[in-house]
Amino acid sequence: MRRRTFLGVSTGAITAASLIGGRPVSATARRPRVVVGRDFATVQEAVDAGGAVIGVLPGTYRGKVVIPSDRPGVSIVGLGRRPEDVVIADDRANGTPNPAGGTWGTTGSASVTVDGAGFRAHNLTFANLFDEAAHPEITNRQAVAVLTRADRVSFTRVRFLGNQDTLYANSSAATTVARAYFRDCYVEGDVDFIFGRATAVFDRCRVHSLNRGSSPNGYVTAPSTDTSNAHGFLFARCAFTSDAPAGTVFLGRPWHPSQDPNAIGQTIIRESRIDAHIGSTAWSDFGTWSWREARFAEYRNVGPGAAPSPDRPKLTPADAALQTVPAFLRGTDNWAPDRSL
């Protein structure tokens, strides 16, 4: 089996000694080695110290991580054999008390916040470990594992774990385009667990809906794409899986933050496998906002949850030719992270 590389390092045999500035170590290398679990105790310490390519030794690292906007080009690479070997996590929810007063809110709950453009992560896990059952007193349970607001961010072989609002793919402002690319990733959650207004492409990912023991059992996406942005969420060649009963999960619902009428969310799912947890009516209203007014569509999906239905809008072949991975990502700068793998 062919080994993939990331920043010039074989993912089949990444070690702390093999990583320096994103390239294999050489006698003349000048860029410093930055390795969490050896040089630093936490990921945030490595970020604050100015690490550009941060290796992380196997283990679980607790604590909030922020990649600020004045730190473009940061990369975090898990040095284990599998994404499960390195876990970066926190456990705040929207309603968790904030020592500074009030509560953290959804944005503040994020275990990892990415504001630095060009951020990359590979071969690790990001999690929000907030325990809903242990905190019945907290009713606002949105608990974000990763919040992205920067442009040109990419994740490969990364797991995102949480319950409600696991992955917040957003932008710095409603009309600002921020592109994010997810390749060979795993995203897990239950309610609106992929949400926001970013232009986000999920390429060959597994999207797993948890069984929360209710009906509806949850919603996969909650896009809030601004009407000025032609590209919201695209899932291409993905697998939508769940242990939830058949027909109890929706593919998405339209999120209008602060009742913004210009948030005409887009989710497109194409050439993917959808299991039976998705019913014949795949999309749901969000309060008074009708899903029929959003930009929801499918194309050539398969599986028991992809059965044809009048309530399942489909792209025409002509439309599908325009709704592709390159169309979502390229922009005016011809960004092509999908070609570099």
Rank of each mutant, 00 (worst) to 15 (best):
V56S: 03
V56W: 00
V56E: 01
L57G: 11
L57E: 12
L57Q: 13
G59T: 06
G59L: 03
R62G: 15
G63A: 06
G63P: 02
K64G: 08
K64P: 06
K64H: 13
V65P: 04
V65I: 10
V66I: 13
V66E: 14
I67C: 04
I67P: 01
P68A: 09
P68Q: 10
S69E: 15
S69L: 14
S69W: 12
D70S: 12
D70N: 14
R71Y: 08
R71H: 12
R71T: 04
R71P: 07
P72S: 09
G73K: 08
V74R: 03
V74C: 03
V74I: 11
V74Q: 05
S75K: 13
S75L: 01
S75D: 10
S75N: 11
I76T: 00
V77A: 11
V77R: 07
V77Q: 11
G78P: 07
L79G: 03
L79W: 04
L79P: 00
R81E: 14
R81Q: 15
R81L: 14
R82H: 15
R82L: 13
R82G: 12
R82E: 15
R82Y: 14
P83M: 05
E84L: 13
E84T: 15
E84Q: 14
D85Y: 04
D85T: 07
V86T: 07
V86W: 01
V87E: 09
I88M: 03
I88W: 00
A89H: 15
A89M: 14
A89D: 14
A89E: 15
A89P: 12
A89I: 07
A89N: 14
D90L: 01
D91Y: 10
D91V: 02
D91A: 14
R92M: 10
R92F: 10
A93V: 01
A93W: 01
A93Q: 00
N94G: 00
N94I: 00
N94W: 13
G95N: 04
G95M: 01
P97G: 06
P97S: 04
N98Y: 02
N98Q: 06
P99T: 05
P99L: 06
A100E: 13
A100K: 15
A100H: 15
A100T: 13
G101K: 09
G101Y: 07
G102I: 01
G102D: 06
G102P: 00
G102N: 09
G102V: 05
T103Y: 09
T103I: 11
W104C: 05
W104H: 11
W104Q: 04
G105F: 05
G105W: 05
G105S: 08
G105Y: 03
G105D: 06
G105C: 02
T106D: 13
T106K: 15
T107L: 14
T107M: 12
G108F: 01
S109H: 09
S109W: 03
S109E: 03
A110L: 02
A110N: 05
S111T: 11
S111C: 08
S111D: 10
S111M: 05
V112Y: 02
V112P: 02
V112F: 05
T113A: 12
V114A: 00
V114S: 05
